[in-house]
């Protein structure tokens, strides 16, 4: 019993040492080291793939029918486009909303602790665009999108 504990302790110490070494070598970016920090790199990204990669380190997305988007097909005012997403995927950890044609596509990165796989907000849309949703569930990234036609821009004209 004592030996086991000592072994676990040693393993933990070695693992912590590796993390520290990696952090000091600059291999871990602050956004990953501190989960609660605002992921600046992802929000500054100019493309969808880049933003997703910035959040998860990977961008392999699987299209899913289990993600429902509720948004207008056409928006008269791109400054306030109502958008809601819900998913029946199990064990949802994150929901992301990205407006493809915007200068900075990532609109939101939601982290679930004990809430439903649901998020709603009003989006700014500079012009007609696909709006993508990415859901992280069971360690995989699922995606769905909707095309929204904008008849008047949303970024201050």
């Amino acid at each position: 019993m004592t030996t086991m504990k000592r072994r676990t302790f040693l393993k933990g110490t070695i693992a912590a040492g590796v993390v520290l070494a990696a952090a000091s070598a600059g291999l871990l970016r602050p956004a990953r080291a501190l989960a609660a920090e605002w992921p600046e790199g992802a929000f500054e990204s100019r493309g969808i793939q880049e933003a997703i990669k910035g959040l998860y380190g990977a961008s392999d997305l699987t299209p899913s029918d289990a993600i429902q988007i509720k948004a207008p097909l056409q928006a008269e005012n791109g400054a306030q486009v109502p958008f809601a997403v819900s998913t029946s995927l199990p064990d949802v950890k994150n929901i992301n909303v990205l407006v493809e044609a915007n200068a900075r596509p990532l609109a939101a990165n939601m982290r679930v602790e004990r809430a439903a796989g649901f998020f709603s907000a009003r989006l700014k849309m500079a012009k007609t665009s696909d709006v993508h949703v990415v859901v992280r569930s069971g360690g995989k990234l699922y995606t769905a999108k909707q095309h929204i036609k904008v008849t008047a821009g949303g970024c201050g004209g």
Binding site: A36, W38, P39, F43, A79, Q80, V81, A84, S86, V97, L98, V99, N102, R104, P105, L106, A107, A108, N109, M110, R111, V112, E113, R114, A115, A116, F118, F119, S120, A121, R122, L123, K124, M125, G154
Partner: peptide, 28 residues
């Protein structure tokens, strides 16, 4: 969003969210 003082859900927002944000979450 906190439900009975426990963190239920958190969202990082960017500049593609509208002015005067109206955000919705659901608590099962």
């Amino acid at each position: 969003l906190y439900h009975n003082d426990a963190l239920a859900v958190e969202a990082d927002l960017g500049i593609s969210i509208s002015e005067d944000p109206l955000i919705g979450f659901r608590l099962p």
